[in-house]
Amino acid sequence: MIKVLLADDSPLVRAVLKDIFAATDDIRVIGEAADGREAVELAAHLRPDLIVMDLMMPVLDGLAAIEEIMSGFPAPILVLSGTLDDHEVNRAFAAIKKGALDVMSKPDGGGLTSPSEFSAGIVEKVRLLARIRVIRRPSRHREQPAPPPLAGGRKILAIGASTGGPKAVMSIVRKLPADFRGTVLIVQHIASGFDRGFAQWLDGECPLKVRLAAEGDALKEGEVLVAPTDCHLMVVDGRTRLTYGPQVNCCRPSIDVLFSSLVPLGSQVVGVLLTGMGKDGAQGLRGIKEQGGVTIVQDEQSCAVFGMPKAAISLEAADRVLPLDAIPAAIIKLFANSTEE
C-alpha cells in the first residue's frame, strides 16, 4: 500500500485527490495538511511514501516546506501547480531544484488534460514516484577504464531524460561554458503545459541561450533547444522538425525519435541518456554509437529511476557510464577535443 500525504490549503482539492486515490486498491491517504508548517510536521510524524504538495500555502509556503522535508526526512514529492502562468511554473521548477521529483497541473489549474486524464495521470505518477528512494547519500565514484580515443567534429549534444530529469538536465547544461561549440537538443518527458516553463527555468540557470524548439530552426552553436510537449523533435537536413506522429515507447516527444534522427550525422553527435523509467532512448542511442557518435549514460547510483539507462546498457549502447556530476566535464572535454582536430 502506498501511503500518501496531501498538502494543500484548498479543502476542495484535497477532497478531489482523496476521491481519486480511494478508487484505487493500492494508494491510501494517511494525512492532510492545510499549510506548509503542518505538512512538515506530518511528514516527520507519518513518514509517507509520497507527498502531493501545493506551493501556495499559508504559514509556510510549499518551497520552504520542501526544503525542510528534504533536509530532515526526505520523501518523494509531487508538486501540483495551481496555474500555468510564468510565476507559478517558475516556482514549480524551483521546487524541483530543492528536491521535488515531478510537477503536474491541478485539475482546475488551466492544464490541458480532462478530469479523467488527470485522475489516470496522477495515479500513474504516484505509483512511479513512490518507488524512488530519495535518501541522502554521497555519490560513489567508481574508477572506470580510460575510453579509447574518439573522433572529432562533434557539433550536436542530444540529451534525453524522464522521471527525475529536470534537475539532472539542469545540472549538466548549467556547467557548459558560454562559448560551447555545439547545439544542445533536449527531450524531457514532462507534463503538458510545463515545457515553456522548463525552457525558461533552464535559460535562467545556464550561460547558454535556452528556448523551445520551433519548426525549421537552424542548428546554431551555443543554443539549447527544448522539445515542446506533445510533439516529436527531429533533425532533418540540419533543421529541426516537429511532428505529431504516434507515441513511441508510450511517449511524445520521444527520445528515440530525436536520437534516431541524428544517427546519419555519426561522429558529429554526443548522445546522453539520463534518469527515467522504461526504455525510451536506448535504441536510438545504440544507433548513434554504431555510426561513430559518442554515447554517455547516467549510472545507477545517481539516477532517480535507473530504467532508460539500464536499457541502454543492456543494448551495449553506452560508450561511458558516468555519475551525473561527472557528465558535464566529459561533455566539455569531448567538444573541446573536437575543435582541436
Rank of each mutant, 00 (worst) to 15 (best):
Arg137Pro: 04
Leu262Gly: 02
Ala317Cys: 08
Ile327Asp: 02
Val272Ala: 11
Ala329Glu: 15
Ala92Leu: 05
Ala95Asp: 06
Val257Tyr: 00
Leu78Asn: 03
Ala304Lys: 13
Leu50Gly: 01
Met53Cys: 01
Ala158Asp: 05
Pro309Thr: 04
Val13Met: 13
Phe180Val: 09
Gly31Ala: 03
Val257Gly: 02
Gly276Ala: 05
Met277Asp: 00
Pro107Gly: 02
Leu60Glu: 13
Gly266Asp: 08
Gly287Tyr: 11
Arg211Ser: 11
Gly271Glu: 05
Val257Met: 02
Leu55Thr: 01
Gln200Ala: 12
Thr183Cys: 05
Arg37Ser: 14
Ile159Cys: 02
Asp299Ala: 10
Gly99Lys: 07
Lys220Asp: 14
Pro74His: 06
Pro207Ile: 10
Ser116Met: 06
Leu185Thr: 06
Ser338Pro: 09
Ala94Tyr: 01
Asn337Asp: 15
Ala92His: 01
Thr275Asp: 03
Pro107Glu: 00
Gln301Lys: 14
Thr229Cys: 15
Ala336Asp: 15
Glu38Thr: 12
Glu143Phe: 14
Phe194Gln: 01
Asn337Phe: 12
Ile69Arg: 00
Met308Gly: 10
Pro253Val: 01
Val29Glu: 06
Glu221Ile: 09
Gln283Asn: 13
Asp102Thr: 08
Ala213Trp: 12
Ala15Ser: 15
Asp35Pro: 06
Phe180Ser: 09
Asp49Arg: 03
Asp217Tyr: 01
Pro115Leu: 05
Arg286Trp: 01
Arg286Leu: 15
Lys98Ala: 11
Asp319Gly: 07
Val235Phe: 11
Leu315Pro: 08
Asp280Gly: 13
Ala312Cys: 04
Leu324Val: 08
Gly121Asn: 10
Val257Asn: 02
Leu322Glu: 02
Ser171Gln: 11
Met70Pro: 07
Gly62Asp: 07
Lys310His: 09
Leu101Met: 07
Lys209Ser: 12
Phe198Leu: 04
Val103Asp: 02
Met170Ala: 14
Gly292Glu: 03
Val59Asn: 09
Gly216Asn: 09
Asp25Ile: 02
Ala218Cys: 13
Pro11Ile: 06
Ile313Gly: 08
Asp19His: 09
Val187Asp: 02
Met277Leu: 12
Gly62Trp: 00
Arg137Ala: 13
Gly222Tyr: 12
Ala330Gly: 03
Pro253Gly: 05
Ser267Gln: 14
Leu84Val: 15
His189Pro: 06
Ser260Lys: 14
Pro328Arg: 06
Asp9Pro: 08
Gly109His: 04
Gly99Asp: 00
Pro107His: 09
Asp108Glu: 10
Val59Met: 04
Glu341Asp: 13
Ile156Lys: 14
Gly160Pro: 02
Gly293Leu: 10
Glu215Ile: 03
Lys220Gln: 15
Ala22Gly: 10
Val270Met: 14
Thr163Ile: 12
Gln291Lys: 15
Val16Met: 13
Thr113Leu: 10
Arg241Ser: 14
Ala317Ser: 12
Ala151Asp: 11
Arg181Ala: 11
Ala15Phe: 08
Thr295Ala: 02
Cys231Ser: 10
Glu205Met: 12
Leu84Ser: 06
Gln247Ala: 13
Glu290Met: 15
Leu208Cys: 05
Thr83Phe: 10
Glu68Pro: 00
Leu42His: 03
Leu273Arg: 05
Val59Glu: 09
Glu341Trp: 11
